[in-house]
Every structure is written in structure tokens, then in C-alpha cells.
Design a protein around this nucleic acid. Structure first.
Ligand code: FES
Ligand code: FES
Lengths: 147, 147
DNA sequence: TTTAAATCCTAGTAATTCAATAGGAAATTG
DNA sequence: CAATTTCCTATTGAATTACTAGGATTTAAA
């Protein structure tokens, strides 16, 4: 289970991807994504610190993607907000940490399963780019503005 | 990320699977798996309620697997302890719940990604049985008792 | 029939994480 | 300067996590 925060982050990023060229304000993102404004601000701050978005302050400021939509994956975003995607730290690449209750992790059956799980999971999450996700939701864009 | 509790549950179940025929006491499981005794008791209670283990009370009591090791999967155990394995409830089969902040989930890009993630994940977790896991750790059994 | 050894049951607790909110400082544009 | 918008600090309430305590209940052996 990912956190609400991570879900909002994914949502915000796909919204930014849909509005690709244009800079958007937190305000507008919050409304379009049904995300609590202040919470979104905190999320955008984290994404900014990791370079996934670029911000401009002051009047007529806003946010733009930090990289091309085809270069940012769901995995990138999830790792920034929720940390490692592996089900266990001992099976993680980005957040590896040994299990102190398992001696001999090379031979640990649980770790073995979780390594497979991590691989399967990251094969999906590191393949799906914002471009893919923005495309998926196209055709819905109108219905948002219709009502 | 799965909880420590879930990890302990997986550990306890693989230990039971290794000792297949024989009944084991919580005591012995706790020691072999380096699991806090009282915590393990609570875990075994949950597993028992779902039929994954069978218990016998009183002196010389203990626990046995509730089904054959090839019939119990890592996914079964994880669902009992940590709930649904899908990254989002809206992408879950066992624990489905709609997202109230996304209208039109058929067309939601985030849900789409998480459905793929859930499928990839459950393909691994629902395939790995306790038999597989016990086999993986065989050959290590001796080294535990050697030192 | 007592007693020792187990599981079972109810509760509680300390620490952490989650999901936000509040309030104002700093920057930018017109 | 004034309005707008991001940025920063900090706090809060609720939930979850990771356990622990203590005793009731059951069973089998002495
Ligand atoms: S080494 Fe991490 S679960 Fe065993
Ligand atoms: S429907 Fe669940 S994330 Fe959009």
C-alpha cells in the first residue's frame, strides 16, 4: 500500500504532464486533482528538492516538470515520497539495510521471495512514464471542463 | 513495504513448513526465527483464525500448518497479516474500495498503473508456496544447530 | 487430582508515521 | 508599492506499528 501522499504526488505529476509545456500553479493542480492545497504544497516541495519539478516563485509563478514526461517514471515519484519500493529493506537496491534477525541473508527464503517481488514491481513502476500516464488519461480532459 | 509482523509471519510459516510433519511450539518457533515470543503468539492467533495454522492447547501442545505447504502461498500469509497487497485499494481485488477523489476510475491513470503493479506482484506472491520457501532454506537448517 | 506446560484472551503503551493545517517570510511581477 | 505565489517552520490529531503484561483456559502427565 502506498500512502495518500504518494497517490497525490502521482496525480499532481500526471496533471503537470498533461499540461506539459505550460506552467501550472499549485492552486490549479489542487483543484484539478482534488488534492488539499496545503498538503500539495508540501508534496511539491519534496518533488522540487529531488528535481522532479521546477518552481518559479512570486506572482504568476508555478510549477513545471523537471524532466521530459518520458523520462520520469512512477517509480521515481514513489521513491521520492514513500521511499524504497521493495517490500523489505533487505531486498531493496535504493534503500538496502540488512535484517538483524536473519543471519545469512543469501540463503533467507523470505528475502528471496521479496527480491522477486521487488523485481516484478520495479519492472512495472520503472517502465511506466508520465508520458504513458498522461496519454492514458487523455480524452478525459474534456469531461473535466465540461461540467 | 510490509510490516515486521508480516515478515515474522512468513518466517514462522516457513519454519513450520520445514518441520512439516512435526508439531512445533511457539517457544521453539520464536527461538529459531528470532521472533519476540509474545508478538509471535499474537501472530499465530491471527493465522489460526484464518485457518493457516492449527493449534493444540495445553502441555505438549503446539502448532501445525493448516494446509499442505504447497497449498499455502506467501500472498495468503501477507493478506492475512497486512491486508491487500495491491498498492491502492482501488486496484485491489481482495480489498477493493473506490477512490473518492478520482471520478471515473475506469479512466484513472494512477489506478491503471497500480492494477499492473498488483498483477505483477500477485503473480509472484501467489505463486511462491511454503514448499518452495522451505526448500530454498534447506541446507541451512544444519548450520543453525551447528553453532 | 494436582501440577506443569502450553495456548488463548484482553488490555495497554510507547514510538512512529500519516494526513493534514496554520501562519507567515521571501520572491517576483506589474 | 501591492498583489500574488512559492517557501519554510511547526504543530496537531488520528491511526498504525511493534511490542509487552498478566492472567484465564486447556491439556497431559505425574
Ligand atoms: S534477510 Fe531480510 S528477511 Fe531474511
Ligand atoms: S481511482 Fe484510485 S487512484 Fe484514481
Amino acid at each position: 500500500m502506498i500512502s495518500n501522499k504518494a497517490k497525490y504526488a502521482l496525480k499532481a505529476m500526471t496533471i503537470l504532464a498533461r499540461h506539459h509545456s505550460k506552467k501550472m500553479q499549485a492552486n490549479a493542480i489542487a483543484e484539478e486533482g482534488q488534492i488539499p492545497y496545503k498538503f500539495l504544497e508540501a508534496i511539491l516541495a519534496e518533488l522540487k528538492n529531488r528535481g522532479l519539478v521546477i518552481s518559479k516563485r512570486g506572482a504568476f509563478g508555478g510549477y513545471v516538470l523537471g524532466e521530459e514526461p518520458e523520462e520520469i517514471t512512477a517509480g521515481d515519484i514513489l521513491r521520492v515520497i514513500d521511499g524504497p519500493i521493495a517490500p523489505l529493506r533487505c531486498a531493496s537496491v535504493s534503500g538496502y539495510q540488512p535484517c538483524d534477525d536473519c543471519e545469512g541473508e543469501e540463503i533467507c527464503a523470505i528475502r528471496n521471495v521479496m527480491m522477486d517481488a521487488r523485481i516484478a514491481l520495479s519492472n512495472v513502476l520503472d517502465q511506466k512514464t508520465l508520458k504513458d500516464m498522461a496519454k492514458f488519461e487523455r480524452g478525459r480532459k474534456e469531461s473535466i471542463f465540461d461540467e
